[in-house]
């Protein structure tokens, strides 16, 4: 098979990728931008890890997140309490932004990953697959759960001096989910899925498990 020509989206350099790809990362020879990452078993991993992330996320919403006690007064916050409070105080811009970046976008990303991985795992290419991949790409920078975790840690240290602050079950579930999300982001490469869509459009047989086809 011939090598395949690709064009770097960051610096416009044309380069060739070998075929078949070996597992690993291929960088642009000019600027070092990652062109393709071939992760064997990506679909299976996405399926399993996103189910885990969805479960942890759902549970972290249901359990108390942090509790704070000062002079015998106790307040408990759930994951969504900050948004509720901002809304109650008519801070709509802040409330909507926090809602989008820590709830809507991250949850939508997990659901989209599952909507992609589950049918492909079972050997089908659903019609919505291109749209799901486009949305995943566009949502990428706006899900900020990792930034939120740092925000929580800073707040804990800030409040340490004022009273006693205790992380609750919701916090630990949430903290356990963050490395899983980071790993998902690390292994996800839409290239083989786009190749799959192309094969399906041409009416070809869908290869499974996904081979290093690019």
């Amino acid at each position: 098979m011939h090598d395949r020509v690709v064009c770097c989206s960051e610096c416009d350099e044309l380069s060739k990728l070998p075929r078949p790809l070996k597992p690993g990362r291929y960088r642009c020879p000019e600027c070092g931008h990652t062109l393709v990452r071939f992760v064997p078993g990506m679909v299976e991993k996405l399926y399993a890890l996103n189910l885990a992330a969805a479960t942890l996320y759902l549970m972290s919403l249901l359990y108390p997140f942090l509790s704070f006690e000062v002079l015998g007064n106790r307040s408990t916050a759930w994951f969504l309490t900050p948004i509720e409070n901002l809304y109650d105080r008519h801070e709509y811009i802040l409330a909507v932004t926090v809602l989008m970046t820590i709830l809507v976008v991250p949850a939508a990303r997990i659901l989209l990953y599952l909507a992609v991985a589950i049918p492909v795992y079972h050997g089908r290419v659903p019609r919505y697959l291109p749209y799901a991949l486009k949305l995943l790409e566009e949502f990428l920078p706006w899900g900020m759960l990792d930034v939120f975790l740092i925000g929580v840690l800073v707040s804990i240290v800030k409040l340490l001096g004022m009273g006693s602050i205790l992380p609750q079950a919701g916090f630990w579930l949430f903290a356990a989910m963050i490395p899983i999300l980071a790993y998902i982001q690390m292994i996800f490469d839409p290239h083989p899925l786009w190749e799959l869509i192309e094969t399906a459009q041409r009416g070809g047989k869908i290869p499974y498990p996904l081979e290093p086809i690019l």
């Binding site: 942090l66 309490t81 901002l86 925000g151 800073v154 707040s155």
Partner: peptide, 9 residues
């Protein structure tokens, strides 16, 4: 985020 968490707690 720090501001919104402090507001809630």
């Amino acid at each position: 985020y720090v501001v919104s968490i402090m507001v809630a707690l």
